[in-house]
Amino acid sequence: MEHPNMHQLDFGFELEPETTQKQTPKHFKKAQSDFVFEFMDCLSSPIIVYPSAWQDAVPKQVLDNITLARLLTQMQGEKMASLTEVVAYMMPRTFESPMPSEWANIYTWCGLQFAKTFKNGGQIGAMLEIAPETLSDYEQALLKRLRVWIYDKRREALKQKMKADTSISKPSSTESPRQEGLFGNSKTT
């Protein structure tokens, strides 16, 4: 049937017919597994703190906000620890002994950013009095290096945890589960 008002236009595109089976490229599978690992990293990686007798003194409010801070940092595309994690890491160190001025500036500036991000009104007023408005280039470089170091350590700890979990969940090939092991050592008479 021909329609007088319809015209078929040929743009010269030569397309191969689409195959019925679509194979997902390896880079797509890797991107999916990377996304899953990144998400697991944000949600379940351990919190890295300075090893000290004071490491249990980090306030619950800071610890509770680390997951959200990780997610916000991840959404911004940064491959480093959040500023909240820096506060949690540095806090036990501040109780040990006085720090050099650049590290004190970094710690107080990160604390101010934490207070602003999580709307802690009482803390913001106090932090504005002591925290610098901006960090020097040298302090920014120190902070970036610390954030990357914390990020690497927490991911390494997550990988070790995942490896340990998979080795525990898989019985070795030499072990075979026996019925007594499954149901106890009860004997029937």
Rank of each mutant, 00 (worst) to 15 (best):
H7K: 10
S173N: 05
G125R: 08
S33M: 08
L135T: 10
G77W: 12
L135Q: 08
L128W: 00
P59E: 12
G77N: 07
L142Y: 09
L63T: 11
S136M: 04
S97D: 12
G184Q: 09
Q160G: 14
Q76E: 15
F28R: 07
F118D: 06
I47H: 00
A131C: 09
G181Y: 07
M80L: 13
L142H: 09
G121Q: 14
E175D: 11
D34F: 11
C110Y: 07
P46Q: 05
M162L: 15
F37I: 13
G122H: 08
Q123I: 04
S172G: 02
P17E: 14
M91P: 01
L146H: 02
P171I: 11
D56T: 14
P100D: 14
T166N: 06
S33L: 11
S97L: 12
E18F: 08
L158K: 05
W54D: 03
I168T: 14
P59D: 11
A31Y: 07
L128A: 04
I124A: 03
E18S: 07
E38M: 10
A104Y: 07
E78G: 01
K116Y: 14
T73R: 00
Y151L: 02
T24W: 11
K161H: 12
H3Q: 03
L72P: 10
L158P: 05
E175F: 13
N105C: 10
C110S: 15
A157S: 14
F28S: 04
A69Q: 03
T174R: 09
P132T: 03
F95M: 14
E16I: 10
L142I: 13
S136Y: 01
S101N: 01
A53R: 08
P46A: 04
Q123R: 03
A141Q: 10
Q140M: 15
Q113V: 13
G184E: 11
I168D: 08
F118W: 12
K60R: 10
A57V: 15
E85M: 09
S186E: 13
I150N: 02
N185H: 12
F28G: 00
A81Q: 06
L68Q: 13
C42F: 05
L63G: 06
M80Y: 05
V62R: 01
M1N: 10
V49S: 11
H27P: 00
V58A: 05
F13D: 10
P4M: 06
K163E: 15
D64Y: 09
A53H: 05
P25L: 04
F28N: 02
W149F: 08
V87Q: 01
D34V: 12
I124F: 07
E38K: 10
L15K: 05
G111C: 13
S45L: 06
F114S: 02
T188C: 02
K144M: 08
T73Y: 03
Q179E: 08
D64K: 11
P100K: 06
L112N: 04
G184K: 04
Y138R: 01
W149K: 10
F35A: 12
W109N: 12
Q179N: 02
Q160P: 00
T67G: 02
W103Y: 15
H3G: 00
G111N: 13
P46S: 10
P177M: 09
A57I: 11
L146W: 05
F35Q: 07
Q123W: 09
L146S: 02
D56M: 14
R154P: 06
K187M: 14
A164C: 04
P177V: 12
A57M: 13
K153P: 02
I106G: 09
Q23D: 07
I47F: 00
